[in-house]
Computed example of a mutant assay.
Amino acid sequence: MNFNEVLDQRRLLPLYTVKDLEECLAVGKCLVEGNLPIIEVAFRSDYAAEGIKALSSIDGLLVGAGTVKTTAQAQQAIESGAAFLVTPGLSAEVVEYAKEQNVPIVAGAVTPSEIMQANQLGLTCLKFFPADVYGGISALKALHGPFFESTFVPTGGVTLENYKEYLALNYVKAVGGSFILPKELLKAKDWQGLSSFIKGL
């Protein structure tokens, strides 16, 4: 399955920061077992590229890179095996590079001007981050009027308590965040529990 198919089917994008390669492989296997075969590896640690490489060895898991802010990071991510990119904001340079490499990209855009710029770059699926700071559900409802052709992936302040409210909006393609991989289950290394939790979302 490709990036769009997985997102359309499950509408969840787990965000993960790699700190330990052994743990990251266990997490990747839990996602496949939990029928959510996708992971966004944040470029927030020195292990990001290594983590992408390791996770890409898991059959059936679609691995992408998140928190990509520069073309150099995008290049490193793609060379390590990233099948998609997610950026916190809008960089025309990074978007054009991803398009040249034929790699899907979800770029961050929260204001009307940014959304217009993203649309002009050919992007219609956009990251809405940090969702809670920029008005959450009410902001998305307001933006949908003029930007009815765009879909959004809200992250930042999306939680277990409110993610279904976001998903009730049909122009929300998916929601993302680390809430999909609860810290307490990771800390306890409760892989069976994590697989079950993911399956239940």
Rank of each mutant, 00 (worst) to 15 (best):
F128W: 10
T87G: 00
K19I: 02
E50F: 01
I180D: 04
E93M: 09
C24S: 14
A82K: 03
L123E: 14
L160Q: 15
L123R: 04
K19N: 15
T70A: 04
T67P: 04
Y16G: 06
G89H: 10
Y166L: 11
T71Y: 05
I105E: 10
A49P: 05
K183D: 14
F148G: 06
N170T: 15
G176F: 03
F84Y: 14
G135F: 09
Q75Y: 05
Q75T: 13
T70L: 02
E161D: 12
L185C: 12
Y16L: 14
Q75H: 05
V6M: 05
F152A: 01
R11D: 07
F148Y: 09
L185G: 11
L21Y: 13
Y134E: 12
V27M: 01
S91F: 01
L126T: 12
E165Y: 06
L201E: 13
P104W: 09
R10E: 13
I137A: 02
S113Y: 01
L85S: 08
F43N: 14
E23W: 00
K183C: 02
T155K: 01
P104N: 10
A109I: 13
S138A: 14
S91A: 12
K53Q: 14
V6Q: 10
T71C: 06
E33H: 03
W191M: 06
T111I: 02
G34P: 02
V94C: 08
V158H: 02
A48S: 13
S150V: 08
L55I: 13
I105A: 05
L167T: 14
T87L: 00
A26W: 00
S178A: 08
D46L: 04
K189Y: 05
D8F: 06
D46N: 10
K69T: 15
S57I: 01
P14E: 03
G177S: 11
A98K: 01
K164C: 06
W191S: 08
Y166V: 15
L85E: 02
V18W: 08
S91K: 05
N4Q: 09
I115K: 05
Y47S: 10
S195P: 03
K141D: 14
P14K: 01
V27P: 01
P154C: 11
A77G: 08
L160C: 09
L31Y: 11
A109L: 12
